[in-house]
Amino acid sequence: MTRADYCVVLFAALLLPYLYITQWTGNESGITASIMSGSSTTQLSLAHDHTVEVAGTLGTSVIKIEGGKIRFVTAPCLGKQCIHSGWLQHAGEFAACLPNRISIAVLGETPRFDSINF
């Protein structure tokens, strides 16, 4: 074994744990969510807990990301259907505040369905 050989083995020994840590831990499934306000869209990882304030047409909606889930917590609309939608965590789930023109959706994994009828 030459010195370069040891370097390669060391590299492999470091690369493997790095791959396991980045691909397998933290965000359990690498799921991201999109937050859309009007026509602009932001994507956020669900791996880290956040509170996000988003300005809509009526006022500010507050969106919370916690433990790999996302939901509306406060909204300036009257009906509060967005808040009633509760926590979203599976790919393809979404909730919207139509009056405030803000929607949240869970992306990341291939959803089972191409579209949802409701």
Binding site: R112, I116, N117
Partner: peptide
């Protein structure tokens, strides 16, 4: 195309087409 039809009272899908 696979379409999920929402469950009327619970989260999730009741049927698909």
């Amino acid at each position: 195309w696979r379409i999920g039809i929402r469950h009327p009272t619970e989260a999730g899908v009741i049927a698909s087409i």
